[in-house]
Design a protein around this nucleic acid. Structure first.
Length: 448
DNA sequence: TACTAGTTTCATGGTAGGTT
DNA sequence: AACCTACCATGAAACTAGTA
């Protein structure tokens, strides 16, 4: 100790501030430093009153014995003197002490968080994940998440293939598990189990889990429980195999039989629908939703609601040429409500036509799905060497990154030039007679 | 026809790895 | 070093099929 400096060890009764801070009453040791008229104090720590501890020179977890406090005060005094010699003062020590305390606190908190994170279950994290991400997702995407993790076992009357109850989603088995137990090995084991049952559900689930674990690793409270991303396991992906690609499409030589069978369907609304599908290459949903108002006879355009405006579709709408034959068959449909392909309820559009298509296909001896009709449109245009950009625009495909440079939005009349050629060619191949009395198109031809 | 289960397709942003 | 670009991950939205 240097001259003029006294070290005072005082027992301080719980101060209001102290009480308010940790809500506990107690005794705390301070080392008081005084110089001249001013004095300051530095906290040492709480008093541990445990009998037998009084004369111990080291602090316990609970606090300091008197002997330990004295020892600590002496150490602080030395520290102070040294600091002073180096030109720094009390403030510095306070600062250091504060910092050390904050670090210790942070460390303790981190440890506590780690302990808590170690116990957190997938289900807890999943619930928060969905809640947080929901506003950013579309309804289908959210529905997929719910579906993949659902418990199943609910009574259902239909669609359960005889089981009577719904079945659990592939991800449900993970929910009760601890997040930290989701290891690559566990995921691989899961993948192997599902590969034989429902690979596509599992493939989708795997991607969902991967995104989920990524979120966890960036989220306080869960980050400690995940190391790396267990769902990135190559083995798991391999176990599930690659996704199959559907290739069914009508071949040129199948067109006569297909058209004959479809035109012979009892339900003419469905017949018109299926032919429109093939001749426009549009998406099933888009065609089903066509309203009478979407048919523009003046400009011979057909307005379709593009499937997703959020993905850059302009106003979620595109207009394609209304070709003569399509115009003709649509015109012949009864106007029972707002929708061209009206269903039993005239205010709504009909239900899907895959049954009608299947029966026509079996009569024709071909196999094609509804989406296959869209594929057929693309592949049939190859016979005609129509620019790919034109086909893409009619079908409502977004320009691909590579082709983007050369992508130009073509006016309806330019699309019509190609589209009418495509329709004419398909009908010729099919041996379907061109409409004789079909309005605008014919009139214009006559004028010309 | 309405559900439920299962499967595909499409868009887009990021990036590894090559090319200028 | 700057620039490309094929490919992948992720997100989203469908589509197909079986059954009561």
């Amino acid at each position: 100790m240097t001259e003029g400096e006294t070290i005072t060890l005082t027992k301080i009764e719980p101060a209001g501030a102290l009480q308010a801070r940790n809500g506990k009453k107690g005794i705390i040791f301070f080392w008081r430093y005084s110089q001249g008229t001013t004095s300051q104090r530095l906290p040492i720590g709480p008093y541990d009153p445990t009998p037998g501890h009084v004369n111990k020179h080291t602090p316990t977890a609970a606090g300091y014995s008197i002997a330990a406090a004295i020892k600590a005060a002496e150490a602080m005094a030395v520290q102070h003197v040294t600091a002073k010699a180096e030109g720094s003062g009390m403030g510095e020590i306070l600062q250091q002490q504060k910092q050390a305390k904050a670090e210790a606190k942070a460390k303790q908190e981190a440890a506590a968080a780690a302990t808590k994170a170690a116990e957190v279950t997938c289900g807890e994290a999943w619930t928060e994940y969905l809640k947080e991400r929901e506003p950013h997702w579309g309804k289908h995407h959210l529905a997929d998440h719910i579906r993949m993790a659902k418990a199943g076992g609910e009574t259902a009357k239909r669609g359960t293939r005889g089981r009577g109850v719904t079945i659990a989603g592939p991800l449900h088995e993970f929910l009760p598990m601890r997040l930290r137990d989701i290891t690559p090995q566990r995921i691989e084991q899961w993948a192997k189990k599902h590969a034989g049952e429902r690979p596509t559900m599992a493939r989708l689930s795997l991607r969902i889990v991967r995104a989920f674990l990524n979120w966890c690793s960036e989220h306080t409270g869960y980050a400690q429980a995940v190391t790396g991303n267990a769902a990135k396991s190559k083995k798991a992906r391999e176990a599930l195999g690659p996704a199959g690609v559907k290739t069914d499409a009508l071949l040129r030589e199948q067109l006569p039989a297909w058209f004959a069978a479809v035109r012979g369907l009892k339900n003419q609304t469905r017949a018109a629908y299926l032919q429109t599908m093939l001749l426009t290459g549009a998406r099933p949903g888009e065609v089903l939703e066509i309203k009478w108002d979407d048919i523009n006879t003046q400009w011979r355009g057909l307005t379709l609601r593009d499937k997703d405006e959020s993905k850059g579709g302009i106003d979620g709408v595109r207009t394609i040429p209304l070709t003569p034959y399509v115009h003709h068959i649509l015109n012949r449909l009864p106007r029972r409500g707002p929708f061209v392909f009206a269903g039993k309820d005239p205010e709504n559009y009909m239900s899907e036509a895959h049954k009608a298509l299947a029966s026509a296909c079996s009569a024709a001896g071909v196999h094609v799905t509804i989406h296959g009709l869209r594929r057929s449109f693309t592949s049939l245009t190859e016979w005609l060497e129509v620019p790919v950009g034109v086909v893409a625009q009619i079908q409502g495909h977004k320009p691909s990154a590579t082709a983007e440079k050369h992508y130009t939005v073509r006016p309806l009349d330019l699309l019509r030039l190609h589209h009418e050629r495509i329709e004419k060619w398909i009908l010729e191949q099919a041996g379907v007679p061109l409409p004789q009395e079909s309005g605008q198109a014919i009139q214009l031809v006559k004028k010309a």
